[in-house]
Design a protein around this nucleic acid. Structure first.
Lengths: 164, 164
DNA sequence: ATAGATGCAAATATTTTGCCGCCAG
DNA sequence: CTGGCGGCAAAATATTTGCATCTAT
């Protein structure tokens, strides 16, 4: 089942084949990890995603490029990318069931802010967040490698329509 | 198996109060929510828990008090408490599979800090975290009602044994 | 008395695994 | 050529639901 509000992304992945290899593909190649046809497709989907996707959405998009991609392969490739630390896993406070969402790991961590009423998810970056993680690393004398922050509430628009 | 419900507090349970009825029980009663035998037991378990528990742990502890508690009832009671905003749900970065953990919602939010190597989970409170949430509320003009932050890394001890 | 809760079994939902043939390097 | 990879089916894990019965208020 599709979950998150489908953004715009029309049918087809409008991939300019001028783009030789995406970032994920380059990284995996550099690590000497075998690049199969299916992997290439899935990596391409992840690289081009404008927002977090769940496995079914990844599968759907991948199959538009190459119908021979199997759900299991999506799971296995996701596992690989998680292990390599190239993607982040979210569950968006279980807004839509116990499904997981994935997105490529950008240079800066960001926080996912979800409206519990309308389901809209926005992203948020803050120096405070970086400071917080530094504080944790310092206080516990540990090396912080992953972090996930999800915040829920009632958004601007929903608050307005509520008190109307 | 125990035919005699001696009403002893199980070994894992810290009886930190002579409370006749715990906090959760009082709150639900005040809200006019029906308190069944099973619910009382589960609420007691949650109130006395010294840390986050998963459903199986909740069931196990509940059945030590009253063996007639069913797993389904644990799930349904957890749902109730979630809906009432009395407990928090965590998944600790899926350290141990896609299992959820629950803990009573204290006065202050805290961050869960997990070691990805040894699995130890510690808690962390910080004024910075409160500021961060305020900043989000202000920037998005929204009312923040829930938040979850989970941080993973390699802890002090594991770092030491690693470089040994 | 009665709305709502529980128990039990079965259904769902999500993710993982075993096995074997196939392909990238 | 060969060891890792993908497809398929089936298993494993986690959670929810239908329905008859029971119980707190």
């Amino acid at each position: 089942m599709a979950a998150t509000p489908t953004h715009r992304v029309s049918s087809g992945e409008r991939l300019n084949s001028a783009d030789p290899t995406g970032h994920l593909q380059k990284t995996l190649r550099a690590k000497g990890i075998r690049l199969t046809r299916q992997r290439r497709v899935i990596l391409e989907v992840m690289d081009n995603a404008e927002q977090h996707l769940d496995v079914d959405q990844i599968l759907e998009r991948a199959q538009k490029i190459d119908p021979a991609v199997h759900l299991v392969t999506v799971y296995r490739t996701i596992d690989l990318l998680k292990k390599e630390g190239l993607i982040d896993e979210l569950d968006l406070l279980h807004l839509r069931g116990d499904r997981h969402y994935y997105e490529t790991h950008g240079p800066r961590d960001h926080i996912h802010v979800a409206c519990l009423r309308c389901g809209k998810v926005r992203e948020f970056e803050s120096r405070l967040y970086e400071q917080l993680k530094e504080q944790i690393a310092r206080d516990f004398n540990m090396r912080v490698t992953v972090s996930r922050t999800e915040v829920g509430g009632i958004c601007d628009a929903c608050l307005a329509s509520e008190k109307k």
